[in-house]
């Protein structure tokens, strides 16, 4: 068995008594690409929120490499190597595509360092290659606010690639994309998930089939099933609660 990069144990969060995630165990291996599926409100986004520090869990433990993430705040978790893409594409709309990628370059992220930061060749090359990967090489000088919804999704993925995280958390990366864009994105995910661990939340089963190694099904904050796509799809509980309708 390969080593675990992420170990979530007994994770619970309660919003005014409502348990959005309830005593969940969740393990991700090195270099694995995991899909998390489940009906709306199952707690998928909340799970990622807790891993990346956006939401504080009520109880439980989240271990990433040798860090206990529940003791850290967002920017520390990011610097430790966790990258997060949000459900609604979150890019810096007043900055150009180039600048969005530039400030995601994980160097000199303190005040004085960033004041005297100079773009170097290595960064420029990385920006070029990432822009090509995310199909935005011709839009480097475009304000991110002017991109289409799908392009913003790609740009946000590109920002994560600049960060080069060991664990990539992607929340519905193909939402709002055309069929063609979905295919491109599946290819993109397959190539960028090499050499790192990736967790993808997705609704679109066809898309999940294109990328997943292993699937986790959440329901009402709890783990419903876990296994290969085929195993999960033939699990009667899953069929009943989710895939059935």
């Amino acid at each position: 068995m390969a080593s675990l990069i992420l170990q979530v144990d007994g994770l619970t969060v309660s919003f005014d008594g409502f348990k959005a995630v309830d005593n969940l165990n969740f393990y991700v291996e090195q270099d694995e690409l995991r899909c998390v599926i489940g009906p709306n409100g199952a707690g998928k986004t909340t799970l990622l929120d807790m891993i990346c520090g956006k939401t504080k869990p009520t109880s439980g433990s989240i271990k990433f490499k040798n860090h206990q993430l529940t003791d850290m705040i967002e920017y520390q978790i990011t610097r430790a190597g966790v990258g997060r893409k949000f459900q609604n594409p979150s890019v810096y709309e007043d900055l150009t595509v180039y600048e969005n990628l530039d400030i995601s370059w994980p160097k000199q992220r303190n005040v004085l360092g960033s004041l005297f930061f100079r773009r170097d060749r290595k960064m420029a090359e990385k920006v070029e290659s990432v822009a090509t990967q995310i199909f935005l090489q011709d839009q480097l000088r475009t304000k991110a606010g002017l991109l289409s919804h799908g392009q913003k999704q790609w740009l946000e993925i590109g920002m994560l690639l600049m960060q080069d995280p060991d664990l990539l958390l992607l929340d519905e990366p193909v939402a709002g994309m055309s069929a063609r864009e979905r295919e491109q994105t599946a290819e993109l995910l397959n190539s960028i998930s090499k050499g790192r661990s990736t967790v993808v939340i997705e609704h679109d089963m066809a898309f999940v089939k294109m990328i997943a190694h292993k699937v986790t099904v959440l329901h009402q904050g709890k783990l419903l099933a876990e296994g290969s796509m085929d195993q999960v799809q033939s699990d009667p509980r899953v069929v009943e609660t989710y895939l059935g309708h």
């Binding site: 990346c52 520090g53 956006k54 705040i73 967002e74 920017y75 990011t78 610097r79 990258g83 997060r84 949000f86 979150s90 890019v91 810096y92 709309e93 007043d94 900055l95 600048e99 530039d102 400030i103 995601s104 994980p106 000199q108 992220r109 005040v111 960033s114 004041l115 005297f116 930061f117 920002m159 960060q163």
Partner: peptide
């Protein structure tokens, strides 16, 4: 400087900036 671009990013989406490691 890059600090200036980070400021603009904070002005527009402060929450996101934390997840860029700032």
């Amino acid at each position: 400087s890059r600090l200036g671009r980070v400021l603009v990013a904070i002005r527009d989406r402060e929450d996101r900036v934390r997840f860029s490691g700032y």
